[in-house]
Design a protein around this nucleic acid. Sequence first.
RNA 1: GCUGCUGUAGCUCAGAGGCAGAGCACUCCCUUGGUAAGGGAGAGGUCGAGAGUUCAAUUCUCUCCAGCAGCACCA
Length: 648
Amino acid sequence: MADITITLPDGNQRVYPAGVTCAAVAEDISKSLAKKAISCTINGEHRDLSRVIEADADVAIHTMQDEAQALELIRHDCAHIMARAVQELWPDVKVTIGPVIDNGFYYDFDRQEPFSSEDLTEIEKKMREIINKRDPVTTEIWDRDRAIKFYEANKEPYKVELVGMIPEGQDIRMYWHGHWQDLCRGPHLAHTGQVPADSFKLMSVAGAYWRGDSNNQMLQRIYGVAFKNKEDLRAYLHMLEEAEKRDHRKLGKSMDLFHLQEEAPGMVFWHPNGWAVYRVLEDYMRRRLTDADYKEIKTPQVVDRKLWEASGHWDKYRENMFITEIDEEHANEKRVNALKPMNCPCHVQIYNQGLKSYRDLPLRLAEFGSCHRYESSGSMHGLMRVRGFTQDDAHIFCTEDQIETETGRFIGLLSRIYKDLGFETFEIKLSTRPEVRVGSDEIWDKAEAALTRAIDNLGLPYEVDPGEGAFYGPKLDFKLTDAIGREWQCGTFQADFNLPERLGAEYIGEDGHKHRPVMMHRAILGSFERFLGILIENYSGKFPLWLAPRQVVVASIVSDADNYVLEVVEKLKSFGLRAEADIRNEKINYKVREHSVGKVPVILAIGKKEVEDRTVSLRRLGEKSSDVIGLDETVELLVKEATPPDLR
RNA sequence: GCUGCUGUAGCUCAGAGGCAGAGCACUCCCUUGGUAAGGGAGAGGUCGAGAGUUCAAUUCUCUCCAGCAGCACCA
């Protein structure tokens, strides 16, 4: 048999007969490595130790020290061990698939009765038994017919389907965890005992469609998390608790920002505190847009179906629209209206008033556009996905030649705004022409190139998502990263060659002839509701002073200070600060606690001394100490800090 | 929309086929207290909505509504 050369990560080369296994290579390198080895990487592919190497290759042997590989194996084996546990407990359950996901794994089962939380405890117990058996994990490659017959005999219809889906020429790899068998591409640990028995936890059961298709059978998915050791698991569970604390739905309640109720699902009732933040954000956005030469407009909420038919929404978007029928007394037929789900058709109506010249372009029409969409019941989530919302929407009517400049200007505006709102970094995704589209290839070439050049000119990195553009034009999506590393797609910048055509928008060019403008749909926050949800979670409710709903509470320590407290509050208010007095008959400890829980950024405590010296004792949220400073100095300090970033 | 779970005081939650419970919040009284809960008393409920079983249902069953987790959806 021919010899092959194996190159190790340190550059060392070793020669072995072709067909050598990775385990043998590890054994050859050192006994201790062989003992610790869990898997290997062959030419960049993560594989089992039992994998044979047939030709020259780059090989790395992994141990539990290799975080990424170790976690992948632990989680993947956990999924299999869970499936085995389930089938040992309930042999008639059918197995399907069970991949590794962030922090853990899941496995989808077909079972008549739902899994209960007691069942999960049972399964966990059984999993630990399996781990303690230290059953070897083995693998074989089978041919298709044999695998199909095997699964038919075992009454595993989903596995039969999966085998059928494996492309011709690809190995059909069968795994055994002890006596239990599964179809899998691997890799796996060498035996079940390598999975740490104390570092995994089954988290929840939920429905999931077979192969992700809502036309298919619904299966039961059990989610689990798994780590290298107990400490990591504990840290993860702790992190979950912390994330729960910043949930905007919880903070919305405790900070008295907004509520939702049964009679208006998906529609927000903004309370005074929440609306204060909303307005600060809206005012800020309005100033930024004005600075950037946008013209603000306002268009109707309820619009006749004729316009939606013309725009194409009646055809493609009707399921998501709130539709109203009005019986007019003498009308021949019912008048059918829809609440606008988008602002664009209305904006074109404003554009279409009066003949436009190329000299009017680019025309940037902005609206804080209140929209309604009938979102499916299961998709709503606090402020993040609602049925009634307001977009920071705008449409830029321009020529094809202006797309590049407008893109650059837009990204400049967007990054300025994200930065002001506390988000330093964002990612850009460029989605290019899909199969089905409108507009000539020439226009698409031009538009895609213009978007690309604009990002390049700014020196920003971006990702291309080929074929993911809208049917009406290419687009840029902007994703920001919050304080705990989650990504949110907020901004969007989309070229549209379709709507101007459908709704008959035109302008007179330099040549004296009529032309079609391009319409750029764009948003920076997305919707105010969702963005406020993101802001609440990003800051954990601890807003910077300019955004905080309640900025300052002035609290008396003794009732003799009440008059001075009221005076201080009036003074702060006269400078535009959102200040309140707390002269309740309570101890200062009580007041400090209550306002800290309410996330008020600044508490000014006032006792006898402060009254005499005309000072305040300033305490910031989360800090233990306080500073005694003069009243005028305090006002100056707070006013400066509460000034929105664009006015500083 | 689908699967599962949940719905009890303003909030967080306990409870049980037979008079509805706690803590916090609220009101009143005492207390004037120096930076995360001072003490006492009181008030507060159609147990999500409707139907059924039962001598009796907030509790059991069914339907609906809403919320939560996930899936699907997000031209």
